[in-house]
Amino acid sequence: MSESNSIVKMINEELGINLLGVLVFNGNEIVLANDVPVELMRLAASLINFINRVNGLEYAKVKLNNVLMYAVRSGDLIIVFLANPTLIEGALSLVNRYVDKLVKMSWEVLNKAKAIEPAVTVEGDELTEDDILILLDYFKGKLRELEAKGE
């Protein structure tokens, strides 16, 4: 269960609506996501591509494939609310009050990633065929040892 799941639940309970999910993008990358179906993620990603290409576009509202997508820009981040298209205009505008909370949560995640990035940027070296065969020999040997022990 992700934070975005709980915030979707909270928004739905507080507003009495039925949001399908929330996504937060940084550029074209997802920072926070509900467990929304891949098809909806793809639709949202298309919308984000469009918004990123248009300077000064602060929000967008699109109905596509029976899904209403409402995207709001906040600095470098874009928050996308996914809803049933029957959701009334007034209810949709109420979700704006959750933008700041989602932005805060997203930056926490991004900062955590930035903090650990130096630790995970170990990159593989150039390996020769002999190197690969040495690894294969070693792990096959470990397997034989286990088999010999009857494990």
Partner: peptide, 12 residues
């Protein structure tokens, strides 16, 4: 594994 961390996948 969670999709909300997908920006980490490429880094790692």
């Amino acid at each position: 594994g969670q999709e909300r961390f997908n920006f980490l996948w490429r880094i790692i």
